[in-house]
């Protein structure tokens, strides 16, 4: 909306920051506590997106120990048994993605294997053929093959589909360091439904959650009655 007579100039869809004006630099991010040094990490899991982060949060976390956070970008780092770490992240500004990757760099470099899981809405999935499934899973891997942590093989993410954000940054960094990493992209129809079975199944296989919750929809939690 603009006031009568006001000239509203169109903005570009391609720029996040308006380079024509003085731009205040985005604030630097930092861990709540100094990050420990890591000697060896077997696997680092990075779970990106509101619903996958909440899925981890909703399950009992006895086997996950919260060790650090960056609250501005809702990033939480958990330690699992046998040198595995889980990082959840949601609702962050895309401009912060590369800085978040830099924060995670000590873990990304030290890890033998990195797996990132990202959720996107089904509408974002680009294909010329009709989409009949409510869920599409695609995989993207670095040139160096990663050890398999689950049975079967997902289809690769076909062009023109691409991923962006922290998961993309992590994969990109590992690729440039000649290290292995895999990203799974879950295109889901009902992105409000954090209890999507297939997401829980993969998290259970990776031992990030202990059991699969009932997918019974909780009308009150999922409604917009309460904020």
């Amino acid at each position: 909306m603009c006031t009568f007579g006001e000239i509203v100039e169109p903005v570009s869809r391609s720029t996040w920051e308006d380079w024509d004006d003085e731009i205040p630099d985005i604030a630097s991010l930092q861990w709540q506590q100094p990050l420990d040094t890591f000697n060896k990490i077997e696997t680092l899991f990075i779970l990106e997106g509101k619903f996958i982060s909440e899925c981890v949060k909703m399950h009992p976390q006895a086997h996950l120990k919260l060790i650090n956070s960056v609250l501005e970008v809702n990033l939480h780092l958990y330690e699992m048994a046998s040198n595995k770490y889980v990082c959840t992240i949601k609702n962050y500004n895309l401009l912060h993605s590369s800085e978040i990757v830099e924060l995670l760099k000590p873990l990304i470099i030290t890890s033998d294997n990195v797996v990132t899981i990202q959720t996107k809405t089904l509408l974002e999935y680009q294909t010329a053929s009709p989409v009949n499934s409510p869920l599409i899973i695609r995989e993207l891997s670095t040139s160096k093959p990663a050890p398999k942590l689950w049975d079967g093989k997902f289809k690769r993410l076909e062009q023109p589909n691409i991923i962006s954000g922290v998961a993309a940054g992590v994969l990109c960094l590992r690729e440039h360091l000649d290290l292995s990493a895999t990203t799974l992209v879950y295109y889901i129809e009902h992105s409000e439904e954090y209890q999507t079975d297939e997401i829980q199944q993969i998290l259970e296989k990776l031992k990030i959650i202990n059991s699969i919750c009932s997918t019974q929809v909780n009308g009150i939690l999922n409604s917009n009655l309460y904020i």
Partner: peptide, 19 residues
């Protein structure tokens, strides 16, 4: 770190496995 990260397979060759 100056780039907003983006990654996908080769946009000029659908059969290629390069990123």
């Amino acid at each position: 770190p100056a780039q907003i990260p983006v990654i996908g397979y080769d946009p000029y060759d659908l059969k290629s496995n390069s990123l």
